[in-house]
Nucleic acid binder design. Structure first.
Lengths: 139, 139
DNA sequence: GTAACTGCAAACGCTTTGCGCGAAA
DNA sequence: TTTCGCGCAAAGCGTTTGCAGTTAC
């Protein structure tokens, strides 16, 4: 990810490096506050404003993807991976990634049938565990 | 819609009647400010707070559906119609409704394969017109 | 009559921004 | 030296809420 930033001519400061690292290592979809907390665990002089500015910057150059899963807070993940959509376990709040080529194709077909060219989409599945032994957790 | 409110035991005040009517007659997906403006065209003593409170109330009893198409403002439509998803023309902002049984089935299948039971979903297609003669409009 | 609703204005939560300072090129 | 990023605090925005007066039943 750092390499990517250099290619784009972004000045890599200490703060940005830390924030980049936090998201590189994240296996979940942290919101801004969580990124801030994790960044501060590494360097506690990073302000919330800088986190907001940096996340936005990274999003603009397509290093990160921003999501909104309906709780009113932006959540981030790195964008360099294969495209996928999200299933949100409404019991635990956990987010699971999935891919489905067939749905993607149908989406493009629907758009075309309506006279449009698909340029993006948002698909989120809200679901509950089948075997109801859900463990409560933040994600 | 008014009938529906009475069934639910909602007190039908003048303000609520107006707001219900505005959304009954809406062919688009107005945001709160727009609902407020349209309601005021009928009775200019309806406050924004009441619009917010009423829309939320109607949403809670499933008279209305709330959407968030990514512009940070809630948008509403009546909920009594067939289920559908939305295609957003990113050129004009226009919203087109569509149905696709096959996508719905695949969504349920995806959820099940992951060990979940689908309880809701959000699908939005962002697209541009194929024949690029888009007329700019609010919706 | 009384519980429920309303308007107003203040507060809310998330996010952005103006400013002066400090670091990098 | 000039540009850019930073922390801080204040402001912005859509939305919610406390309160006192008003309305529907």
């Amino acid at each position: 990810m750092e390499q990517r930033c250099v290619e784009l001519g972004l000045k890599m400061t200490g703060q940005r490096r830390v924030i980049a690292r936090v998201l590189s290592e994240a296996k979940d979809h942290p919101n801004v506050e969580l990124v801030h907390r994790r960044a501060n665990a590494i360097d506690n002089r990073i302000s919330l404003a800088t986190v907001y500015r940096t996340l936005r910057l990274f999003e603009e150059v397509d290093i990160l993807e921003r999501h909104d899963f309906g709780d009113g807070k932006a959540r981030y993940e790195k964008a360099d991976q294969d495209h996928h959509d999200h299933l949100i376990d409404v019991k635990s709040g956990k987010v699971i990634e999935f891919q489905n080529r067939e749905i993607e194709k149908l989406q493009a077909a629907v758009a075309e049938r309506l006279g449009f060219k698909l340029v993006g989409h948002r698909l989120e599945l809200y679901a509950v565990p089948l075997a109801d032994d859900a463990t409560e957790s933040g994600e």
